[in-house]
Amino acid sequence: MLEMARDLLSWAFILGGGFFLIVGGIGLLRLPDFFTRLHAAGIIDTMGAELMLAGFVLQAGFSLVTVKLLLIVLFIMFTSPTAAHALAKAALHGGYKPRLATGGDDDRGSD
């Protein structure tokens, strides 16, 4: 009974993670400029990857494997915002202006 509940839960996590991964991928393709695509990459790194890894943790039970999975989760949680921030900052300093909806100067966006 408990076993089945665990399996169902990890199924849900893994499928949910897969769904968010694909949504993030679609977002990377659909969104109009680099800064908006950062948000789609955020979906992949936070929701997609973490849900899927959570599903794996449930499958692994309690062992060294779980520890390693949790290390990966922690690691992605700590590094992905750092990488995104560094990327955005570098792009901004590199002269790439975000395309904005307000302000009316749409032509500033460079593709």
Binding site: G24, L28, F34, R37, L38, A41, I44, D45, S80, A83, A84, L87, A90, A91, G94, Y96, S110, D111
Partner: peptide, 11 residues
């Protein structure tokens, strides 16, 4: 842009 490329590689 090259930033899109780096972002994609990160993901």
């Amino acid at each position: 842009t090259v930033w899109d490329c780096i972002l994609a590689i990160n993901s």
